[in-house]
Write a protein that binds this DNA or RNA. Sequence first.
DNA 1: TATATAAACTACACCGTGCAGTTTACATAT
DNA 2: ATATGTAAACTGCACGGTGTAGTTTATATA
Lengths: 200, 200
Amino acid sequence: MKLTDKKRMQILDAAEELFHSSGVEHTSMDQLALQAKVSKRTVYNHFATKDALFQAILQRMFDKLAQGGEVRFNVAEPIDQQLRRIAQDEVALLSSAAFLRVAKIAIMQVMQRPELAQLMSDSSLGCKRYIDNFLTDACTAGVLKIADIPFAGKQFIYQLKSFVFYPSLFGLEQQTPAQQAHIIDEAIALFLARYQIKPG
Amino acid sequence: MKLTDKKRMQILDAAEELFHSSGVEHTSMDQLALQAKVSKRTVYNHFATKDALFQAILQRMFDKLAQGGEVRFNVAEPIDQQLRRIAQDEVALLSSAAFLRVAKIAIMQVMQRPELAQLMSDSSLGCKRYIDNFLTDACTAGVLKIADIPFAGKQFIYQLKSFVFYPSLFGLEQQTPAQQAHIIDEAIALFLARYQIKPG
DNA sequence: TATATAAACTACACCGTGCAGTTTACATAT
DNA sequence: ATATGTAAACTGCACGGTGTAGTTTATATA
């Protein structure tokens, strides 16, 4: 790896760390250069302004999170098992340090500069990408009965977000794995009570 | 009204406006004095520091929101009607400009200074105050069957928050009254599908 | 030879203070 | 009632101190 690329990475790593722990506003470029073990001039050789660096960080963090497996509906497997896998993946994402970092940074900026709001809603992470297809297939197979599929998908995801994501985001309690399992179980129970077609 | 009280109110009004639109950090005391039509020195005669002003704003806004009726369980009335009244009150609160203002200001500060997180969770607004009692009574009356009442209460409230509050908070779309009614209906349907004891 | 470094520098914005002079509210005297 | 005194509050402005984005310059290093 070329030296310049290595330095660039050091800068981005430091920015991610400091923007998260201290906020974008409270992170000075001097502090950042120090943390990156790079001269301030080098920072400015790579990024013209603080804002450009911020944009780059956001992009990199989104890219990191973009991957993640897709769960496809399978008629042969019990629906609750499949939903549990989806929910487990989602909870793992929502409670991951990486996701919380980017979310905290992004949300703070969005709240300060509402014109960037679209950026957030556009980015489709986690099970949001495929849940509508999954539910459609489950309905077609006669396992679920849902009138408004996008709405129902939100109901499911929002359960997880509300119990797992927002409390962490606002610095309240984190959940233990046991609590997370309970949250997942209850979200599924709630969802299936409403939408599952009972056999028999 | 005495002059000094009038000035104080002008300062608080300006602070509420600017803290909301620009954030606490990005509001300078000069700007604030200008908006309040008051000299900067007067601002400092009323509030020793910017932080003291911030605390006062938060207190005033919480006081404004503190009122709100309590819905008590009534055996004679259908449970879905009662839940609808609770949900309507809650949605009205969550989508009110006053609540969104204080929430935005408070959350921005909490995210920047996590040590203040308790302040938010401690304040009990809306139906959070009484929903546990309501559900307990409904269970005792044999209308609902809930194992973990605080958890179920959260499930109900979080439905409303997720669809109504957070999208508004992050500057995404507002809901029309018709959409709000739909959200309420679906939240109740979901909740009762899981927890209602079917007659017969 | 191109790039990194260190340190000093510029330009600016902001918090909070001090102070001289003015306005307001209200009590007391005529 | 009207005039006058007075204390409290407001104003406007300048200033100290601090922090920070971004630049410049001179030097070292791969």
